[in-house]
Design a protein around this nucleic acid. Sequence first.
DNA 1: CGTGTCGTTGAGCGCTTTCAACCCTGGTGG
DNA 2: CCACCAGGGTTGAAAGCGCTCAACGACACG
Lengths: 261, 261
Amino acid sequence: MTMAWLLLGTNVTSLTRVPMNFMTISPSQIQDTMSRLRYFEGWDREQVVRLAAGAKQITLEKKSKLVSKGELIDALYIVVSGQLRLFIPLPNGSERVIALVDRGESFGEPCLIQAEPCPYDAVAGKDCHLIAIDGMVYRRELRQNPAMADNALALISRRLLQTLRDIEICAQPSSVQRVARYLMHLEPATQDVGFEIRLPALKRDIAAKLGLSQETFSRMLAFLAQQGFIQVTGGNVRVDDRHRLQLLASAGCPMETDAKN
Amino acid sequence: MTMAWLLLGTNVTSLTRVPMNFMTISPSQIQDTMSRLRYFEGWDREQVVRLAAGAKQITLEKKSKLVSKGELIDALYIVVSGQLRLFIPLPNGSERVIALVDRGESFGEPCLIQAEPCPYDAVAGKDCHLIAIDGMVYRRELRQNPAMADNALALISRRLLQTLRDIEICAQPSSVQRVARYLMHLEPATQDVGFEIRLPALKRDIAAKLGLSQETFSRMLAFLAQQGFIQVTGGNVRVDDRHRLQLLASAGCPMETDAKN
DNA sequence: CGTGTCGTTGAGCGCTTTCAACCCTGGTGG
DNA sequence: CCACCAGGGTTGAAAGCGCTCAACGACACG
């Protein structure tokens, strides 16, 4: 078990000695935390209580691994604070990010329901607090309470549709188009032609989600900025004209190498 | 600069005049057809009868389009014969295949459940017979019958996990690895070191599912054959040594351009 | 025997990756 | 206060891989 790190794609320079910490917290406190999460919004109070009975709180240090690809997981995880990165490790040592799980979001439902091994690694992108709901308890509630099943059905349906949208972005033939589409899909609800957004994760991780190298992502942002489509300041991106960007996303662009004219 | 063609996905050379044909068939016959499909295996007979009440049979000519990306669909479709191709049209005129739907399989559940537009085009790869179950009826049964909900939950969970496996294949850094992994995942249940399979669709469509051009897919198969990993005869592929192929899928390969040694 | 579909093969180019060095920022400790 | 360092990001140069375009081959069908 000492060579566990060999299996990781990315280099784990500072191996955490205490990767994960099961907090001992009163059930009522867990229940309280849970009911404040978006995940449980609009749920029956009794239902939350029943799930809380099989719940633990978990603390996870940045960079520590919660789940390895191929493991059977025995709990449903919901993020209370921090961010989790779900990704498929690739043979060349890099990773393909499947999802970035933020506060109030969860992962693992399909694995629990189908009792299949987890198809991705789950690693803390920052220090995290999670709630882990026992798999047995979750499945029991699913069976016994139709409202639970409806919830899960809607959740997983949404997740599948979201995954297909992600595939659509990754399938774009050129990297400018991938980045342009990605930016369009974070567009807030506003009628204005321009809008400003904050990148929801490290650029490195977003790049890995788009199927690009970090460098290419950086270059494409620079290119879009230089062409006047966007303005980038740190993790903030201002889109000046959504229609023009939309057009680019659909049409593509020659990507001249020399900077003349 | 006439970019009108940019908006079309695939070229619609031969537009079918009678793309789809609603057969008038007795309800009992539909019910009969349905109960023979794998989709309804192990279902309550009463349940099938209730769904059959909202079902029509559809005949679809090869190449005719059943659903366009962005449409709201009002029925659940199940393939009785033929093969349906689900794909995302790309701005350069090519497509990314999401799934190939064979006899006894379905698509559209997440869209119906979430009342969201369909994220892909659905086109008949061959002449098809389908069953279309009315969306209202489907949703009603889902609400009223917990067993239905459990079924759907399992189905969509499986589909999501399958989609993640597809992403894993597409995410492989080199095309040899993509092809090798793809072949490994169609491996039948046998303890033998070698096995033979039949490609489940046109090579062109498989290539589009792997995120490769048809030409590259062909070249990679040829390469694997030349290196003694596989033997290809038409749509049949014989894998000589699964372990060696597995190794290649994980390790990659320099892909020498010249054919020396 | 033409025609259409499917697939293979060849040649060339351009994008993306890789490797490398460098910059910038925030935190830390002397 | 500043030197130092680590983590995240940018930029440059080179090379390889996959795509595009095009022609050809195999096969089925009318």
